[in-house]
Computed example of a mutant assay.
Amino acid sequence: MEQSGSGYRLTRNSKPFFIKGGAGLQHFDKLKAAGGNSIRIWTTEYADEVLNAAHQQGLVVMLGLWIKPAREGIDYYDPEALQTQQASIREQILRYRNHPALLMWNVGNEYDIEAPSPKVFQAVNAIAKMIHELDPNHPVTTTILANPNSVDHFINLCSDVDILSINVFAGLDYFPRLLDKHGLTKPYIVTEFGAKGHWEAPYTAWKAPLEQTSTAKAGFILPRYRASIATDTAHCLGGYVFFWGTKYEQTTTWFSLFGAKGEKTATVDLMQYLWTGKYPRNRAPEIGRLRFAGGYGTNNLQPQAGSLQDASVTASDIEGDSLHVVWQVFPDNNLLGRNKKKDIAPEEIPNSIIAAHGLHAMVRVPKKPGPYRLFVTIYDGKGSIATANAPFYSRIKSTD
Rank of each mutant, 00 (worst) to 15 (best):
residue 74 I to R: 12
residue 116 P to W: 00
residue 82 L to Y: 05
residue 103 L to P: 10
residue 54 A to P: 06
residue 50 V to N: 11
residue 80 E to I: 03
residue 56 Q to N: 13
residue 61 V to D: 10
residue 105 W to A: 08
residue 71 R to Y: 15
residue 57 Q to A: 01
residue 93 I to P: 13
residue 63 L to N: 12
residue 42 W to E: 03
residue 123 A to N: 14
residue 58 G to V: 00
residue 46 Y to H: 13
residue 78 D to F: 02
residue 50 V to I: 12
residue 59 L to T: 04
residue 112 D to P: 01
residue 87 A to Q: 15
residue 113 I to A: 15
residue 78 D to G: 09
residue 113 I to G: 05
residue 73 G to Q: 01
residue 72 E to Q: 13
residue 69 P to V: 00
residue 61 V to L: 06
residue 70 A to G: 02
residue 120 V to W: 00
residue 61 V to P: 09
residue 82 L to N: 08
residue 74 I to P: 02
residue 75 D to P: 04
residue 105 W to N: 10
residue 98 N to H: 14
residue 47 A to I: 08
residue 117 S to G: 04
residue 51 L to W: 06
residue 45 E to R: 12
residue 80 E to R: 05
residue 73 G to H: 02
residue 84 T to M: 12
residue 119 K to R: 07
residue 46 Y to G: 09
residue 60 V to C: 11
residue 97 R to E: 10
residue 107 V to T: 11
residue 51 L to M: 09
residue 47 A to V: 06
residue 47 A to H: 07
residue 112 D to V: 00
residue 121 F to I: 00
residue 123 A to M: 10
residue 50 V to A: 05
residue 114 E to P: 00
residue 68 K to T: 06
residue 44 T to Y: 07
residue 70 A to N: 08
residue 82 L to C: 13
residue 89 I to M: 14
residue 41 I to H: 08
residue 63 L to Y: 08
residue 81 A to F: 05
residue 125 N to S: 05
residue 69 P to D: 02
residue 116 P to A: 01
residue 110 E to C: 03
residue 44 T to M: 08
residue 49 E to Y: 13
residue 98 N to C: 04
residue 50 V to D: 08
residue 48 D to Q: 07
residue 85 Q to C: 07
residue 109 N to Q: 10
residue 62 M to S: 15
residue 91 E to I: 02
residue 124 V to R: 03
residue 102 L to I: 08
residue 68 K to A: 15
residue 57 Q to W: 04
residue 68 K to E: 15
residue 47 A to W: 07
residue 71 R to F: 13
residue 106 N to K: 05
residue 96 Y to V: 07
residue 101 A to P: 12
residue 79 P to K: 05
residue 54 A to D: 06
residue 74 I to A: 05
residue 89 I to K: 06
residue 112 D to S: 01
residue 49 E to R: 10
residue 48 D to N: 07
residue 68 K to P: 05
residue 68 K to F: 09
residue 94 L to K: 12
residue 95 R to E: 15
residue 105 W to D: 11
residue 49 E to M: 09
residue 49 E to F: 12
residue 63 L to D: 13
residue 110 E to P: 04
residue 47 A to P: 09
residue 94 L to S: 07
residue 58 G to P: 02
residue 85 Q to L: 14
residue 95 R to M: 12
residue 89 I to T: 11
residue 111 Y to C: 03
residue 50 V to Q: 13
residue 45 E to S: 14
residue 93 I to K: 09
residue 53 A to K: 14
residue 71 R to D: 14
residue 52 N to F: 03
residue 124 V to H: 02
residue 76 Y to P: 03
residue 100 P to V: 01
residue 52 N to G: 03
residue 60 V to D: 10
residue 89 I to S: 10
residue 111 Y to G: 02
residue 66 W to Y: 15
